[in-house]
Design a protein around this nucleic acid. Sequence first.
DNA 1: GCCCGAAAGTAACGCGAGTTACCAGGCTTA
DNA 2: TAAGCCTGGTAACTCGCGTTACTTTCGGGC
Lengths: 356, 356
Amino acid sequence: MAKTTSPDKPGTARQRGVTMNDVAKHAGVSRTAVSFVLNNREDASISEETRVRIAEAVQALGYRPNAGARALASQRSDWYGIVTEIVTAPFAVDIIKGAQDQAWSDGRFLLIAPSDQGDAAGPNQGMEDAAVEKLLEQRVEGLLYAATHHRGVHVPPSAHEVPTVLVNCFDLDGKLPSIVPDERAGGRVAVERLLKAGHTKIGVINLDPRIPAAVGRLQGVREALADAGLELDPELVAAGYATADGGYDAACQILDRYPAKDRPTALFCLNDRMAMGAYDAIKERGLAIPGDIAVIGFDNQELIAAYLRPKLTTVALPFEKMGALGVQTLAALTAGQPITASQQLVDCPLLERSSV
Amino acid sequence: MAKTTSPDKPGTARQRGVTMNDVAKHAGVSRTAVSFVLNNREDASISEETRVRIAEAVQALGYRPNAGARALASQRSDWYGIVTEIVTAPFAVDIIKGAQDQAWSDGRFLLIAPSDQGDAAGPNQGMEDAAVEKLLEQRVEGLLYAATHHRGVHVPPSAHEVPTVLVNCFDLDGKLPSIVPDERAGGRVAVERLLKAGHTKIGVINLDPRIPAAVGRLQGVREALADAGLELDPELVAAGYATADGGYDAACQILDRYPAKDRPTALFCLNDRMAMGAYDAIKERGLAIPGDIAVIGFDNQELIAAYLRPKLTTVALPFEKMGALGVQTLAALTAGQPITASQQLVDCPLLERSSV
DNA sequence: GCCCGAAAGTAACGCGAGTTACCAGGCTTA
DNA sequence: TAAGCCTGGTAACTCGCGTTACTTTCGGGC
């Protein structure tokens, strides 16, 4: 048997990188000892002196552990995967940020894979399956599946091979745990804020009424009004495309439906883009915000809400928190907690700025 | 202390995963044969019949290669790493998207690591070093280093251990290749557009004049004017904070400096947020966009530019393209191309909307 | 003086692949 | 008929590291 190392061929500059073996040799101990020290295994007995020698050798050689090899040997990768359309349409990019931060501070890596989930059973299902497949090849210990818009989804079958958590969407097949914003409470807090400011005639600029966000938020609106002994007048609700133009049109409808003295004194826009349009409609009519009409938005799209003039008071979608919670939930699952189809609601806080 | 030995019995289906050995057994061949087939090695001779048998076994068993083990054995991970503050401040998130897409379609993974690069030699240099270190532990084959704002940076020393490319920033130590937007050409194209529309008196709302973006864009402005035989009148330039409020103030300054008939007929705002503020200043004065005053922005922040009313014509920062080009450059470097401190300029296209 | 147990390590195996060297048999060719 | 060559394939080594089982030394109790 040849000795452990084959002689390095002269020509090959093949920078092999320094391994635990090199450290061991340099410190005059066995590789096992190095491994013990590096992993802080208190159950193995290594003298303080040797410990120090090894640490010095690590320093001297600039040793850097090989995560892949470690994963292979220990059968755990410390990797999570996230597959998401957010990569392709970065509206809710904070989900990634939250997940990333949480994973990172837990000493894990988050592998990010793109997907083109169509709005329903995607036209591009293949890409998504491939993404999951790729992640599983990397032996991720768990999967996050995130959407840009709160909605129901079908998860690729192979995702069931490891613990999986849905973020900002929920499993239409009802098998996986999910984390979604508490739309209802969000709608409620917005209206409560307006009521508190003395507004009783509140216009609502609605989204497509079929999507979960609209359903939840509107229910919250009704609840808040009911608590104050009021009811939601259908005349005060207008729906439109989820754009600034849509918001402009809807605001015009509502505002022009009444003579000045009967006009609603506040508008609750179910997203910030629509609020942006509503601003224009209001200003065009020579009305002041919030003097004549108060406005509350939803989503807290920083670039809009924080830069509109006056700055927009809005309900924030807790993307970052949902991402973090996703990773935490995943950690619990991979630690052995049983998988259930539980749904965690995350609070949508009201951000007070200057439009109320 | 802990029972590390887990007989495969207990409740948790310790799903060992099927390996190449299993496939080999199932197909009645050696593991080597399987490896050859899976890697499509044309130099090894395997009969068509065996090939098929192996493929069937792979199917039947649902075999999935272990990327980590493959990386270990083949000494190549197919991973790139990107360390960036973009994760923490997602302004230029499209850089990640571009890089991710490119890497993905090249069959590689992009590991994303966060950093808190302060604006100068960061207060949080430690975090950044740690990020690079972590990526190197994963044995990434190359590094991307990206910033949210075009500027000079110092790269952590260990980044020099693998090919590294800077994106949207450049190496103050002048050793690494970088990819940055062509600010100068961007400024030029904006002004040329205004000139073409007949504007000759053009106000400029400037950024902090020391940053590379301002320097470059302003130079472009001068060039375009010079080509038309004009000069940049200092009176027409106002700087401000890079916010909507800053833009509002600066626009007021410029507009109120002149009587109505001498007023500039166009404003070039060096970023979209300032353009947002300028819009307000213009509208407040009862002027129409673009009828009385045309506006061009810079950055193409979708949420602003596409939703302002009228929609903002602006010069786009080519984040996505820079990200993609970063990965391409990295691929060339890891393929053996020598590392130089070359700087690639990426075009900033003008996006025509409705404000000119 | 002998046995025992803790302290301090070490040899050897396995993780899941890629890769090299080598072998068996059949067909050509001289 | 023997030497060579191609076809089809395999054993064995390697990658860097975790882990288990086993060895050696040494101090102390009886």
